[in-house]
Design a protein around this nucleic acid. Structure first.
Length: 680
DNA sequence: TTACCTCGAGCTCA
DNA sequence: CTCGAGGTAA
C-alpha cells in the first residue's frame, strides 16, 4: 500500500541508510577494513528494503537495495568498446624490465623515467561507463574491441558505485578488474561445500563464473570486488584532465571508485624492481590474488610519445611473478596425430594442482624437444604453466629416474593406422604418411570441415566424429551428406531428436561460400584468410582447380610454399573425388567474376594516424581505411604508405618526414576515398 | 590448456 | 541427473 507523502523523518532515515550502506561497502572492498559485521550490514539493508517497500517513492535506481539483481537475461548482448581494451606486454625476468626502462629512456631522451606502479590483479578486465555520473553500461573485455554487456551483473557488485559525485566528468569510462577477495572465495567454497555443491578451483574462476551468470541474483550472492586502473573514453567537461597516471588514479579514488591502495610512483629501473620485490613479499598478505605488478610511464605526455606496438602500449609493462613450479610424475608419453598427420608427443601426468588449475597433459612439441630435455616415462618432472596458460614440462629431476627407463622414441609407424612415419631432413615435425587412410587424420579433417569457420555444421563435435569414423559411417566429408536420421540414431547419445538436428545442420551447410568451402578442404597452409583471398582472386572453384603455379603466385600473399601445397592437394585423385562427391551431394556457393585486383582502393597500403582529426575519431578513420582494404598501423616504418595527421601530431610525424612518408590531412584522405589513390 | 556457464537432449529411476 | 556441444576467459 503506497503512501503518496513520505514523512520527512522516514526520508532522512532512508537517505542515511543508503549513505551508510555505501560507506560500509567502501570500507569492506576498497579500504579492506570493514566497520560492521555482515549481520549488521544485512540488518541495515533489510531496514532500507522495508522502507522502500512501504514508501515506493523512496526507491531510487542507485539505491544499494537495487544490487540484488533483477530480471534474468537470456543472453549477453555484444558491446563495442569506444576505445579498444588493449593487453599489456609481459615480462618475467628482471632483464626484460630493464629493457623496457632502457627503451623508454631512449625514446623519450631522458635520464630517468617516473613510473606509476600497482599490483596486477588476477581477475577479469571490465569497462564501466558512467554518463552524467550514472553507471549505465558494464562490459567484459572480450577480444579487446567487442565484449559482452554484463551491466545487470556488475550492478550487483557492491564495490562499483552506481552513481559518481556531482563533480564527475560528463562521460567517464572506467577500466578495471573484477575479482573475488580471498576471504569471500573461502566463504563461498565453505558454503558450496556444506550445501554439497561443487567447489570452485580458484578465486579467478569463481569470479569469472559469477560474471557469466544469466541471472544477476546469483552474481549478487557471489560477492565480487572491483578495482579500477585506468580509463577509456572520457569527456572531461569542466574537470581538468589529469596529466599523469598517478593523478588519474587519485581522481578516480576521489570519485569513490576503488583503486588499489598499494599503488605508488617510483623513479627509474631501481624503483621498478624495488616495487616488484616489495609487492612480492606482501603478496600473501594481500586480500586478493595478484600475478605480478604493472609499470606505467607516469606522465601522459610521455605515454603518447611512446605510443603503441601492434596490440600493446609501449609505455606499460606487466612484470609477472615467476610461474609456480611443482614436481609430478610422467605416467606415459602418448603420440597424437593431427590433421596434417603431424605426430606430437604428449606427456600424461599424474594430476598436479599448479598455477590454479589441475594439469594432467602437457605437450612435448616434438621428438627433439623430448630428447633435449630427456623426458622418460616414469620420470619425476617439474611442471609449470608458461605464458599464463599452456602447461610445460620444465625439466626432469634426475633422482626420480628408473634405472631401466628407455629413452623416448617416436614410433616408426603411426599409432593410429600403422602407416610409415616420415620426417623430412630439415623439419622438426615427423608425420604419418597415411594421409586420409589414417583414421586420426580423417577425424581431424572431418572435424575441421564441420567447424564453425568452415562449413559450420552445428552438433558435429569430436565425440560424434569419433563414432562416425569408427563405425565406418563416414570416411570422407562427402559421406556425411549421405547420412540419414536412422543411421545416426543408432549411435550413442543420439536419439531421434539429436539425429534429426544434426541432419538438418548438415543439410543447411550445403549452401555455403566459396571461401568457406576452400578453407573447409583443409589444404595445408591454407587458413581462413588465404582461402578468402583465393576465392576472391579466382571467383570460381574451377578456375582455382585449373590454376598453375604461375597463376597461383599472382594471388596476394601467396608464395612458393603455398603454391606447392595447393598443387599437391589438387593433384591427388582422392581429393578431387571427394570434391566431386561434395558438389554432387548438393554443396554449392555463388560464384563471382574473378577479381584479380586486390579489393578496395587502399589494398596493400598501410596508414598511420597521428594527432586529433577535425571530424573523424581515430576509430572512424581506421574503419574507413579498413573498409577500403587498407591497414592501419600504430607506428611509422618504411612500409607505411601515408601518415594521416591531425591537430597536435605526435612523434610519428617526425618519423614520417625522416623516412619521406607522405603526410595527408583528413580532407586529403577523404579526397582519396572519393577519387582514388594519390600517386606516391 | 583448463575451468566455468548454458542449452538441449538423453538416460535413469521412481 | 548427466552428457555433449558451444561459448568465454586467462
Amino acid at each position: 500500500m503506497a503512501k503518496t507523502a513520505v514523512p520527512a523523518k522516514i526520508a532522512q532515515r532512508a537517505a542515511k541508510l543508503r549513505t551508510d550502506l555505501d560507506a560500509h561497502n567502501y570500507r569492506y572492498y576498497v579500504e579492506d577494513a570493514p566497520l560492521v559485521s555482515d549481520a549488521e550490514y544485512d540488518r541495515l539493508f533489510r531496514e532500507l528494503q522495508a522502507l522502500e517497500r512501504d514508501y515506493p517513492a523512496l526507491s531510487t535506481p542507485d539505491s544499494p537495495t537495487q544490487r540484488v539483481g533483477g530480471q534474468a537475461a537470456t543472453q549477453f548482448d555484444p558491446v563495442t568498446h569506444r576505445v579498444p581494451m588493449l593487453s599489456l606486454n609481459n615480462a618475467f625476468a628482471d632483464e626484460e624490465a630493464e629493457a623496457f626502462d632502457r627503451r623508454a629512456r631512449a625514446a623519450l631522451g631522458v635520464e630517468e623515467v617516473d613510473y606509476a606502479v600497482e599490483p596486477k590483479f588476477d581477475g577479469l578486465a571490465v569497462s564501466l561507463v558512467y554518463e552524467r555520473g550514472q553507471f549505465t553500461l558494464g562490459a567484459t573485455r572480450g577480444d579487446g574491441n567487442t565484449g559482452e554487456n554484463v551491466t545487470a551483473n556488475l550492478r550487483t557488485v557492491r564495490a562499483i558505485p552506481m552513481r559518481l559525485p556531482a563533480d564527475a566528468p560528463p562521460l567517464l569510462e572506467v577500466r578495471g578488474e573484477v575479482l573475488m577477495l580471498k576471504r569471500d572465495f573461502a566463504a563461498l567454497n565453505a558454503a558450496q561445500g556444506s550445501a554439497g555443491e561443487k567447489l570452485f578451483v580458484n578465486p579467478r574462476n569463481a569470479a569469472a563464473g559469477a560474471l557469466r551468470q544469466l541471472d544477476p541474483a546469483i552474481t549478487a550472492s557471489r560477492r565480487l570486488a572491483f578495482f579500477s586502473y585506468g580509463v577509456g573514453a572520457v569527456e572531461w567537461g569542466s574537470v581538468t584532465p589529469p596529466a599523469t597516471q598517478d593523478a588519474l588514479l587519485k581522481l578516480l579514488a576521489a570519485l569513490r571508485l576503488p583503486v588499489a591502495s598499494q599503488r605508488s610512483v617510483v623513479r627509474g629501473l631501481e624503483g621498478l624492481l624495488g616495487y616488484y620485490r616489495f609487492i612480492g613479499t606482501k603478496r600473501d598478505k594481500l586480500p586478493f590474488q595478484i600475478d605480478g605488478v604493472v609499470y606505467k610511464v607516469n606522465p601522459f605526455a610521455q605515454q603518447e610519445r611512446l605510443g603503441f606496438v601492434s596490440r600493446a602500449p609501449r609505455f606499460a609493462l606487466a612484470h609477472k611473478f615467476p610461474a609456480e613450479e611443482l614436481p609430478t610424475q610422467v605416467l606415459a608419453i602418448d603420440v597424437q596425430v593431427g590433421r596434417t598427420g603431424a605426430l606430437t608427443p604428449v606427456a600424461r601426468l599424474k594430476p598436479v594442482f599448479v598455477g590454479g588449475v589441475t594439469v594432467v597433459n602437457a605437450t612435448l612439441h616434438n621428438e627433439d624437444e623430448v630428447r633435449r630435455k630427456d623426458i622418460r616415462v616414469g620420470d619425476t618432472v617439474i611442471v609449470r604453466r608458461a605464458g599464463d596458460v599452456i602447461p610445460e614440462v620444465v625439466r626432469v629431476l634426475p633422482e626420480g629416474r628408473q634405472p631401466n627407463a628407455p629413452q623416448f622414441e617416436l614410433p616408426k609407424r603411426c599409432p593410429e593406422c600403422g602407416s610409415k612415419v616420415v620426417r623430412l631432413p630439415d623439419e622438426a615435425i615427423a608425420r604419418c604418411s597415411g594421409g586420409l587412410v589414417c583414421p586420426a587424420q580423417r577425424k581431424q579433417a572431418l572435424l575441421h570441415f564441420a567447424s564453425r569457420r568452415a562449413m559450420d555444421i552445428e552438433g558435429l563435435g569430436d565425440k560424434l566424429v569419433d563414432q562416425l569414423i569408427d563405425a565406418g559411417l563416414a570416411h570422407t566429408p562427402a559421406d556425411i551428406y549421405m547420412l540419414g536420421v536412422a543411421a545416426l540414431a543408432a549411435l550413442d547419445r543420439m536419439a531421434e531428436k539429436s539425429a534429426a538436428n544434426v541432419v538438418t545442420a548438415i543439410d543447411k551447410s550445403r549452401a555455403t561460400t566459396l571461401a568457406r568451402f576452400i578453407y573447409a578442404l583443409g589444404i595445408r597452409h591454407v587458413g581462413e584468410t588465404t582461402a578468402a583471398d583465393l576465392a576472391q582472386h579466382f571467383g570460381t572453384f574451377d578456375a582455382l582447380l585449373a590454376a598453375d603455379e604461375h597463376a597461383l603466385l599472382e594471388v596476394r600473399d601467396v608464395g612458393p610454399v603455398l603454391v606447392q601445397s595447393i598443387l599437391q592437394f589438387f593433384a591427388e585423385a582422392h581429393n578431387r573425388d571427394v570434391i566431386a562427391q561434395l558438389r554432387a551431394a548438393g554443396v554449392h556457393w555463388t560464384e563471382t567474376a574473378p577479381r584479380r585486383e586486390p579489393a578496395g582502393k587502399f589494398a596493400g597500403l598501410t596508414f598511420v594516424i597521428t594527432g586529433t582529426l577535425p571530424t573523424f575519431s581515430r576509430d572512424d578513420a581506421k574503419a574507413l581505411i579498413e573498409e577500403h582494404g587498407g591497414k592501419v598501423a600504430g607506428s611509422v616504418s618504411k612500409k607505411t604508405a601515408y601518415v594521416i595527421a591531425g591537430a597536435e601530431p605526435g612523434s610519428k610525424l617526425d618519423k614520417a618526414s625522416e623516412l619521406g612518408v607522405p603526410v595527408l590531412d583528413e580532407q586529403q584522405l577523404m579526397a582519396m576515398v572519393a577519387h582514388g589513390r594519390i600517386k606516391r
